Computed example of a mutant assay.
Amino acid sequence: MRILTLAATLVVLALPVRAEIAVGEISAYLNGFRTAKAEFTQVNSDGSISTGELSLRRPGRARFDYDAPNKSLVIAGGGQVAIFDPVSNTPPEQYPLSQTPLSLILADQVNLGRSGMVVRHGGDATQTAITLQDPENPNYGSIQLVFTPAPITLRQWVITDDSGAQTTVILGDMQLDASIPVGRFNIPQEIQRRGL
């Protein structure tokens, strides 16, 4: 009987432990919601730390409202990213969303199976990290997403820009399919509201 128990234990130990969340499951998770909100902590490349609230609305929209003392605002909408400086009376710095790795997860349909998009993918039973880049424009940088399983949940991302600088965004509990007005992502409206 002890031999049978030992044999059964060895069979169980020999079964493969699921090492990571599959790429297809990650795509399905990202495509499974249109809007999301979460508190975030951002660690910048110079080591400085900011906190705030993130709002996402796919396709193509994101808003980072930074807490005091920073009080900055970053909006992605209308194909642009705008960085509003709270102490400046000048219009925001703007550049195309398509030139940022964040655009990969803000797409209408996220397809991580595209050739050349997944640069790295790995993990263990507790978390999975997947690094993505635009296959047509790898020089725009990359975004590493970190997920926990059961249920799959996005926990953080690390954006590496074209100069190699890294920005880490650690997410609190995400509220999926949250009610977020489209106007919150309207850059011209925010410029007008601020009188810039």
Rank of each mutant, 00 (worst) to 15 (best):
residue 28 A to L: 11
residue 30 L to T: 05
residue 184 R to M: 15
residue 108 D to A: 14
residue 10 L to C: 11
residue 146 V to P: 01
residue 186 N to T: 01
residue 93 E to D: 13
residue 122 G to Q: 05
residue 9 T to F: 15
residue 157 W to K: 02
residue 44 N to P: 00
residue 36 A to T: 01
residue 186 N to V: 06
residue 130 I to D: 03
residue 43 V to N: 02
residue 22 A to T: 10
residue 156 Q to H: 00
residue 48 S to Q: 06
residue 27 S to T: 03
residue 29 Y to V: 00
residue 87 V to R: 15
residue 14 A to T: 07
residue 118 V to M: 05
residue 94 Q to W: 04
residue 49 I to M: 11
residue 127 Q to R: 11
residue 193 R to T: 06
residue 93 E to V: 13
residue 69 P to A: 09
residue 31 N to A: 09
residue 140 Y to S: 11
residue 3 I to D: 15
residue 103 S to E: 10
residue 171 L to P: 07
residue 5 T to I: 15
residue 152 I to L: 11
residue 147 F to P: 02
residue 37 K to L: 14
residue 34 R to A: 13
residue 137 N to Y: 12
residue 152 I to P: 10
residue 152 I to E: 07
residue 127 Q to V: 08
residue 69 P to T: 04
residue 83 I to Y: 12
residue 39 E to Y: 03
residue 22 A to E: 14
residue 21 I to E: 01
residue 59 P to Q: 07
residue 118 V to D: 02
residue 70 N to E: 12
residue 120 R to A: 15
residue 180 I to D: 00
residue 167 T to D: 09
residue 116 G to I: 11
residue 79 G to Q: 05
residue 96 P to Y: 09
residue 174 M to C: 02
residue 104 L to G: 00
residue 196 L to C: 04
residue 35 T to D: 03
residue 34 R to M: 10
residue 191 I to E: 12
residue 176 L to F: 10
residue 93 E to T: 13
residue 84 F to D: 01
residue 68 A to N: 02
residue 186 N to M: 04
residue 144 Q to Y: 06
residue 113 G to W: 02
residue 57 R to V: 12
residue 82 A to E: 01
residue 146 V to H: 02
residue 169 V to K: 00
residue 138 P to A: 11
